[in-house]
């Protein structure tokens, strides 16, 4: 179970292959990539800058991955999250989960993203022609996380 917080881009294909080939009894690999959109709430976005809390971010991500590993039969899980200044279509985050069967891999991947959205200390700031603004947290992210608590 590995988490990385980095400025650099990542090679999602290479990361997925690495986890897929690590064990011969792995039957399922689920992956999620989040990327920068060129439009948010109807406004054009030219750059997206991500700030984070070094030290806490890694711990928070590690705790989320550990929680997923206790709920589902995972062989491995990887989270890579970038910070710094990004452009439209740049990759922001990668989550990969591997398991014997697809159900566990799918659920764990979605769980990790839902928790990351509400517990990992990252903040997005958008720049557009009209200036800069901090992205507001969405209540739909809270409800996405809450549905795991009632299961």
């Amino acid at each position: 179970m590995e988490v990385r917080v980095q400025l650099e881009d990542f090679d999602a294909g290479a990361e997925i292959s690495r986890l897929r080939l690590a064990r011969r009894d792995t039957g399922a690999v689920a992956a999620f990539i989040g990327q920068v959109r060129d439009i948010n709430d109807g406004a054009e976005v030219s750059t997206l800058t991500l700030e984070h809390y070094p030290g806490m971010t890694e711990k928070a991500l590690q705790a989320i991955v550990q929680q997923a590993a206790t709920r589902w039969a995972l062989h491995d899980a990887l989270v890579v999250h970038r910070y710094g200044c990004l452009q439209a279509q740049d990759q922001i985050v990668l989550v990969v989960t591997t398991s014997p069967h697809r159900g566990d891999a799918f659920s764990a991947c979605e769980f990790i993203m839902d928790y990351l959205k509400t517990e990992a200390p990252f903040w997005k700031k958008e720049a557009s022609a009209s200036g800069e603004r901090w992205v507001e947290a969405r209540s739909s992210d809270d409800s996405a996380k809450q549905r795991w608590q009632s299961q």
């Binding site: 989040g34 991500l50 984070h52 809390y53 806490m56 999250h81 922001i92 985050v93 993203m113 990351l116 959205k117 509400t118 517990e119 990992a120 200390p121 990252f122 903040w123 997005k124 901090w134 992205v135 507001e136 947290a137």
Partner: peptide, 10 residues
């Protein structure tokens, strides 16, 4: 002790 707005990563 750290203070920050609700998080918006991912």
């Amino acid at each position: 002790v750290a203070f920050f707005p609700p998080v918006t990563g991912g």
